[in-house]
Design a protein around this nucleic acid. Sequence first.
DNA 1: CCAAATTGCTTGAAGCTTAAAGAAATTCCG
DNA 2: CGGAATTTCTTTAAGCTTCAAGCAATTTGG
Lengths: 164, 164
Amino acid sequence: MMLDSETKAVELPEDHGTELRLWLRLLTCTNLIEGEVRSRLRERFDVTLPRFDMMAQLDKVPDGMTLSDLSKRMMVSNGNVTGLVERLVESGHLDRRTSDTDRRVQFIRLTKLGRAEFRKMATEHETWIADIFADLSHKDIRDLMRLLAKTKASAQRSAKARTP
Amino acid sequence: MMLDSETKAVELPEDHGTELRLWLRLLTCTNLIEGEVRSRLRERFDVTLPRFDMMAQLDKVPDGMTLSDLSKRMMVSNGNVTGLVERLVESGHLDRRTSDTDRRVQFIRLTKLGRAEFRKMATEHETWIADIFADLSHKDIRDLMRLLAKTKASAQRSAKARTP
DNA sequence: CCAAATTGCTTGAAGCTTAAAGAAATTCCG
DNA sequence: CGGAATTTCTTTAAGCTTCAAGCAATTTGG
């Protein structure tokens, strides 16, 4: 037998309170951790989170990547990447080289200095993250990984439906 | 019997890969949804996320709150709030009034216009969030709520340990 | 009461971020 | 081939954000 709550007319305002609360909690959680990481990076290494983030992306590949790749990986706009790269080249952490086959394309990579400094920061950064999540059991982490993957897929489905 | 992996010397670099991956997934997930909400707010109502966020905080209380309260609730700096409030007062959405008992304190609240516009946006916003999370079951949502609460507590414990 | 510490907010400098428009190079395709 | 569309990147304007310094009002503790 069908329950009353499942027979409501579609035009009436539905209750989406739980989803909203979940979103707010997700946001709070992320902001909290992001703020903590930001503080520690500044305090310990005098570096900003976006700079650290860009270096982290570039550390994964030895031969560098293009600005567009960086923009996609970091989920920020193109113009944003242009400015960030500029400042990191200026400070000697990054290296830019125009492609031989396509003169629009720039390959960006870490310099020796940039890689060395990043590795030092990354080691410590990893221990911060471990400490921040230390009260979670292995099962908690596994469950969260799975549920967040499902959430990401759901959000991507929703985004695609809007922009086909 | 103890496993080898649990008997490692404390000074050796430990493996915190799973925590790091969890953090990156959490960040990706949040950025994805935040970007989506940002796009829709701009597209549909020509409003920025920080403005919407501030109005959401103020909508919860009829009599308004101080700048400090706003700053804590929104988890952003004091100076940031000053500028945001300025622009929202300018556009007629907010109202500021100096406290009678403490002339440093300003009470901020939504104007009639501000509240009306926010309510309209909030209704639609809630349906977006519901759609974004639509592929999650009730149990998924419950589990996520619980695990994120645990994560938040763990992060707060870690932050407090650093700044006593 | 009064000096010192604290609290609430603002300012200023630097950097981050986006959206939109534009410049330059390449690719597509008739 | 050659114009049109696309791709890659930069620029610009506006706004967001932080940190640190500073100002004014209040509270605290002699």
